[in-house]
Amino acid sequence: MTSLILSRLVSSFIALLGAALVAFVALRLAPGDAARLTLGAFATDEAVAALRSEMGLDQSILTQFYVYIRDFFTGDWGRSYALGEPVRSLLGQRFPATLELGLYAFCMAFVSALVLALWGAHRKGPISDGVPKALGVLALGVPQFWFGLVLLIVGFEMTGLFPGPAGRLPATVTPPAGPTGMYTVDALLHGDLKTFATALHHLFLPALALGLLPFGFLYRLLRANLEDVSGAPFALVARAHGQSRLRVMVATLLPNAIIPMLTASGLIFGQLLAGSVLVERVYNWPGAGMLVTQGVLQQDYAVVQVFILLSAVIYIVTNLIVDIVAASIDPRLAKGGA
């Protein structure tokens, strides 16, 4: 177990360095002078030279990479030229909104995937199994930002059931002051049920739009896993003991089908982060994803760079945790190390 954790730590560290290198190379592919590009064609040569040395572009490429890595891991993430604030405080302010949206999206996706996969495996009819399967295929083919717009057209413009793309709360409601920055949680902590309900109402459509892709992914994975384990000898044994089909499903098949889903957690986080970039813009959701889209549109790339590298870091760290958790649940993994 210790050796497994050590080897995972080492390989995660290498992956982190690799990801930083990939981001470093990708963002410096452009031929020409980054300082000149930032300042535009009309800047004086002195100003460009000054920015070059400020950005460290006059140093060797190795030194630049070292500085890049050092700054990233020490939290010195530069500043946004358009918003005039350090990237770290910007992301810090906006991240709770993205986290809250992502949490609700994930919960909706996970619960519906779980229920539909169990129902389909339990009763293989055209409606119980066929419709969810078709939904799973559709969910992976729908562009999230477009689905967000369709939900707005139907849920807001046509029926008026849900609020329009006005962010997290209406302007007339003061956001709850609170420790988490997640409005539904903070409102509950203050016992303010009215604000809680309003925040939930505003969350529903964007969370649905963001959750569709993870839903399709999780549903298909879980459904296939359930199919696989239902043929396993231990499932036969459980049935031969005379347990009811439902009991076999929930007590025997589900735990075995859900463990492989753990390893997909990193991918799911990635999908949610990438999706928030697309969905938040549709709903004017003031989160980190919106910051990224604005950064791209205004060619203010400091936030974008950090967000992209952070997404890889989150993926690597999640996988590290998942590997260790999976090995402690399933001793075979700790021994094989695979």
Binding site: V22, V25, L27, L29, S311
Partner: peptide
């Protein structure tokens, strides 16, 4: 290891990085 490093990014965000870089 190089492939792992590339695959650590959500694909669309990596594509964004390359597109911005170019």
């Amino acid at each position: 290891r190089v492939m792992d490093s590339i695959a650590a990014f959500p694909p669309i965000l990596l594509a964004m990085a390359v597109a911005i870089g170019l």
